[in-house]
Amino acid sequence: MQKKICLLGGFGVGKTSLVSRYVHSIFSDKYMTSVGVKIEKKSVHVKGTDVDLVIWDIYGQDDFQKVRMSYLRGASGYFLVVDGTRAATLDTALALHDSAQQVVPGAAFTLLVNKADLVSQWEVREDVLERLRTKGWRVLKTSAKTGDEVDQAFLGLARAMLET
């Protein structure tokens, strides 16, 4: 079984560094800025099934309108990545989410609030996240530095995709 997933998020939220230790890629980071996407791959095992995740790491811009949403076509799920220390990135993520749902309606997704290791400097407020959780969002606090919750994020998204 294989699934396409996307990584979405504003500029500098640390998407690539968040996953780089957990994925395999034959391409260099140059592709991000040139073609606007970098392909990565990760295999997970959920619900007795081996799932090969083909990850489209989409180049993030704070001006989300410039993000090539066509890269989302055919995706079964996506991560929205936010920099916990910059509240604006959450707004970008929410806007990206709206756009994404237009391209792949009903696709599974998870909000990853990055830089959990710098939680004292966070601008993203906990009550905002809580509100999103009550709306049924999966919200995880991750850290590219420590790797907290990254594997769980992949497993959770894969499980959600198999359920939909």
Binding site: K4, I26, V35, G36, E40, K41, V54, S70, Y71
Partner: peptide, 14 residues
């Protein structure tokens, strides 16, 4: 091949 396939598609989209 999986990654090449995705990248080919990305390039075509691009």
């Amino acid at each position: 091949a999986d990654q090449v396939s995705a990248m080919l598609t990305a390039i075509a989209d691009f």
